[in-house]
């Protein structure tokens, strides 16, 4: 399956979904003008990837350092899709990155993991880059 690569803009994160390798990554900041326009294609690609049978392990790196409420809801929907696939037997690992000293982001990660039973969830502290 073709990889999905979308470069970051000022308001949308970089999408780097290497489906063949099973490595999916969202990084940057997310507060799109229209959440459906940005996340629509991301959801569609992810859904069709997860629908295809496969036993290759999947890794999802969530490196969003800033996101708005609608992006948060979109993330929860993505996690739900991953959880459903994991429950069906797919090996899926999610890494939630947060900058050091950003405790509220760490707590949000713990909250978001609440509904994940079959997905392996890890919190990962990354150095703050100083840019706000």
């Amino acid at each position: 399956m073709e990889p999905l690569k979308i470069p970051a803009t000022g308001r949308t994160p970089e999408v780097d979904f290497d489906f063949a390798a099973g490595i999916l990554r969202l990084s940057g900041e997310s507060y799109p003008d229209d959440v459906a326009t940005f996340f629509g294609p991301v959801f569609a690609a992810l859904r069709s990837f997860l629908e295809k049978p496969g036993d290759h392990p999947v890794r999802f790196d969530m490196e969003l350092l800033y996101f708005n409420s609608s992006s948060a809801k979109a993330l929860m929907n993505i996690f739900q899709m991953l959880e459903t696939a994991a429950r069906a037997g797919r090996s899926i690992a999610v890494t939630w990155c947060y900058e050091e000293n950003d405790e509220s982001m760490q707590e949000l990660g713990e909250d978001f993991a609440e509904d994940l039973r079959h997905v392996a969830f890890t919190l990962k502290q990354v150095p703050a880059d100083g840019a706000s």
Partner: peptide, 24 residues
């Protein structure tokens, strides 16, 4: 139940954003 949990999370996300806006 899940929808309620998501609602709690969204409230936290929103509060976090508001706090960030305030300090900005």
């Amino acid at each position: 139940k899940r929808s309620t949990r998501e609602q709690r999370r969204l409230v936290r996300v929103s509060d976090r954003l508001q706090a960030q806006l305030g300090s900005a």
